[in-house]
Amino acid sequence: MAATGWALRGAPNARDLGGLAGHGGRRIRAGLLLRAPALGRLTDEDLAVLARLKPACVLDLRDASETVVAPPDRLPGRPRMVHLPVHDPAHPVFTYVSAVLLGHDLDAYAGLVLDGTPAAMAAIYRWFVADPAARAGFAAAVRLATDPGNLPLLYHCTAGKDRTGWLTAILLAALGVAPAAIRADYLRSNEATESLREVLLRKMAERRPGLDIEAARAVLEVRPEYLDAAYAEVQRRYGDLAGYLTDGLGLTGTELAALRANLLE
């Protein structure tokens, strides 16, 4: 179990990956890898929590098309800000999630339903692995954590569950965390966002009486089959996660060793 020890009211899916067991039973150091959703709705109390955590670097995986319509991140101090967009402009999933969370019109909904919403989500996870630009973004994100000057590293996308979830899976795999523990952390996003998700679904149903709520739910949740779609693409292209890290992301043995030295007790 990861020992969080803190929470952010305005970003309920935020958590610390510290405490998970990695290579040789060495645990991830608390307070160094912090995953979150977008930080534009943090309360003053949340800012006080982050001030204690003192993130040195804040990584934003959103595209400019997402950030321009969202409230700017609220952060204490002056951490290094890095933008590494992982975004497929031809696919409506990211646009739809952003629209839902920001209360905007759901223009991408029809396209998602036409695709079959769970299938559309699985396609995005395969794209995480298959697309060269996506791989470059995730590789650059991992490399940030190989530099002690970027730690603690706080990273996020919009909802903090898909791009953030896959980046977390990559980092944890590189640190030697067991697959079951990686999956458990991934699925924690559902529990962390349950109240917010149900409120959003009720509001959506009120605004659009004909809305397929279960199709909408599929976009607001994480599901095992989404993660499995990424893993299947990894196996198809690279054989296993070790091959994906080195051949897909281009991470060197030196970089992986630095990651473990920085983050494992």
Results as ranks from 00 to 15, higher is better:
residue 142 V to A: 01
residue 143 R to Q: 06
residue 143 R to P: 01
residue 146 T to L: 01
residue 147 D to V: 00
residue 148 P to K: 06
residue 148 P to Q: 13
residue 152 P to S: 08
residue 152 P to K: 09
residue 154 L to K: 14
residue 157 C to S: 15
residue 158 T to W: 10
residue 159 A to G: 15
residue 160 G to M: 03
residue 162 D to C: 07
residue 163 R to K: 12
residue 163 R to A: 13
residue 164 T to R: 03
residue 164 T to Q: 03
residue 164 T to M: 03
residue 165 G to P: 13
residue 167 L to Q: 12
residue 167 L to V: 13
residue 168 T to F: 05
residue 168 T to R: 00
residue 168 T to W: 03
residue 168 T to E: 08
residue 168 T to H: 04
residue 169 A to I: 14
residue 169 A to D: 14
residue 172 L to E: 11
residue 172 L to C: 07
residue 172 L to Y: 09
residue 173 A to N: 08
residue 174 A to Y: 02
residue 175 L to C: 04
residue 175 L to A: 04
residue 175 L to E: 02
residue 175 L to N: 02
residue 176 G to A: 04
residue 177 V to N: 05
residue 180 A to R: 15
residue 180 A to S: 13
residue 180 A to T: 12
residue 182 I to T: 10
residue 182 I to M: 09
residue 183 R to L: 14
residue 184 A to H: 11
residue 184 A to M: 03
residue 185 D to M: 09
residue 186 Y to W: 06
residue 187 L to F: 09
residue 189 S to T: 15
residue 189 S to P: 04
residue 190 N to H: 05
residue 191 E to N: 03
residue 191 E to P: 02
residue 192 A to Y: 14
residue 192 A to G: 04
residue 192 A to R: 15
residue 193 T to L: 13
residue 193 T to P: 00
residue 194 E to W: 09
residue 194 E to T: 13
residue 197 R to V: 10
residue 197 R to K: 11
residue 197 R to C: 05
residue 197 R to L: 11
residue 197 R to P: 01
residue 198 E to Y: 10
residue 199 V to R: 15
residue 199 V to P: 03
residue 201 L to S: 11
residue 201 L to Q: 06
residue 202 R to M: 11
residue 202 R to Y: 08
residue 203 K to Y: 05
residue 204 M to T: 10
residue 205 A to F: 02
residue 205 A to R: 13
residue 205 A to K: 12
residue 206 E to W: 03
residue 206 E to C: 06
residue 206 E to Y: 00
residue 208 R to F: 08
residue 208 R to Y: 13
residue 209 P to N: 09
residue 209 P to S: 06
residue 210 G to L: 02
residue 210 G to E: 08
residue 212 D to L: 10
residue 213 I to F: 01
residue 214 E to W: 10
residue 214 E to A: 12
residue 214 E to S: 10
residue 215 A to R: 06
residue 215 A to C: 07
residue 216 A to T: 07
residue 217 R to S: 05
residue 218 A to T: 04
residue 218 A to R: 04
residue 219 V to A: 14
residue 219 V to T: 14
residue 222 V to D: 06
residue 222 V to G: 05
residue 222 V to W: 00
residue 223 R to C: 11
residue 223 R to N: 14
residue 223 R to Q: 15
